[in-house]
């Protein structure tokens, strides 16, 4: 089972989400090499025309953004990170958020993720599809993170489990079987 999480906000990032919806057709996932996925997302992000506000460029309209309190705009910078494990792949779409308003002055946030703080705007949007010998065969939408039968935000139990089950298999195929067996005990 391969899990792909595209991290964005389903409400405030409606337009982004809609576009990703388009991108996430079964055919798209079936045919696109993974390395190109990030490029594709970045190309989309860069294709959005911001409103020029002088010192800052605002994506309020172009992304359908709405924030309570203060004027907020996105800096013209996006970052997509791919997180790969043995059987899951997560794409996090990050941005640099610039908040401009009143006495608060200018605040910048970076690396927003998973809606885990008051200043975060990003929630999960999840696409799940399976891989058979490296070929994408199915896609389902709206699933939560799945990894090795564990579900949810706390999918990782002990650090040693993650090392043994996820990281070591990625290191040197010819040595990992022995090491993984040894460390998994």
């Amino acid at each position: 089972m391969i899990t792909v999480n595209i991290v964005t906000d389903e409400d405030r990032f409606r337009k982004v989400a809609d576009a990703l919806e388009f991108l996430s057709s079964e055919e798209f996932f079936r045919t696109i090499p993974l390395a190109q996925f990030e490029t594709k997302i970045l190309m989309f992000m860069r294709s959005i025309s911001p409103e020029d506000r002088g010192l800052t460029k605002a994506y309020r309209s172009s992304l359908g953004l709405y924030f309570k309190g203060g004027m907020q705009s996105f800096k013209d910078g996006w970052r997509v990170a791919r997180e790969t494990s043995g059987d899951s792949i997560t794409f996090r779409i990050w941005n640099l958020l610039e908040t401009v308003g009143g006495d608060q002055g200018v605040r910048k946030f970076s690396a927003l993720e998973y809606g885990n703080s008051a200043s975060s705007f990003i929630a999960k949007r999840t696409y799940v599809f399976q891989s058979v010998e490296g070929a994408w065969v199915t896609i389902k939408q709206g699933r939560t993170v799945q990894h090795a039968g564990r579900t949810g935000a706390n999918v990782i139990g002990r650090t040693s489990d993650y090392i043994a089950q996820v990281m070591l298999p990625e290191i040197g195929q010819h040595i990992n079987e022995l090491i993984t067996r040894r460390l998994a005990k």
Partner: peptide, 20 residues
Amino acid sequence: LVEFVTDSGFLDPEGVMIMR
């Protein structure tokens, strides 16, 4: 250093890197 992997943020607040 032949290769390395990281947890890529999965283990936050921990971070793990394995190098071969």
